[in-house]
């Protein structure tokens, strides 16, 4: 069960049970849907941008614990960040979830909540669950109108 506990850490279970910013934003600057056809995960990401600042960010939809917790943690982290900071966090998250370079304990600590998603590396079939909301947000900031799809 060790690997499994790495995947389903307490933070992930908590965000799955009580997702943060799980709501619509009326008058959102960007509304984009992300879909994983493989497992049916489907989320809508709402971004309220004020010039360069992510003034508010939220999500709705349904999916597995990994995808929901990932979306929840993402919204909590990005609120108040600049576009550049959001983009940097996206890159950092991507490296955590999909990278091959080993992550040391000190680095894990510095990653904060992003670090809990390092567990998905051991579960290749679940990487797309973790990255769905982030890709959707990324596409939204890039001004793409098509939602993300992980297939």
């Amino acid at each position: 069960m060790n690997d499994l506990r790495d995947l389903y850490q307490e933070i992930i279970l908590d965000h799955n049970r009580n997702p943060r910013n799980f709501r619509k934003i009326e008058g959102a600057t960007v509304t984009l849907e992300g879909h994983n056809p493989l497992c049916g995960d489907r989320y809508t990401i709402y971004l309220l941008l004020d010039d360069d600042i992510v003034k508010d960010i939220s999500f709705t939809g349904a999916g597995c614990a990994i995808s929901k917790a990932s979306a929840s943690v993402m919204t909590a982290m990005l609120k108040g960040k600049t576009r550049a900071e959001a983009e940097a966090l996206f890159q950092q998250f991507h490296e955590v979830a999909t990278g091959h370079a080993p992550i040391g304990n000190a680095q894990l600590e510095s990653l904060g909540k992003l670090g809990v998603f390092a567990g998905v590396r051991e579960f290749p079939m679940r990487v797309k669950c973790a990255t769905l909301a982030w890709h959707t947000m990324h596409n939204g900031l890039e001004g793409k109108h098509e939602g993300a799809t992980t297939e």
Partner: peptide, 19 residues
């Protein structure tokens, strides 16, 4: 969610399908 069920019981050697 079924996807989580599949991963968790796979760790016990049980192969089922989810989706």
């Amino acid at each position: 969610h079924p996807h989580d069920i599949g991963t968790i019981i796979d760790s016990q050697g049980v192969a089922i399908r989810t989706g």
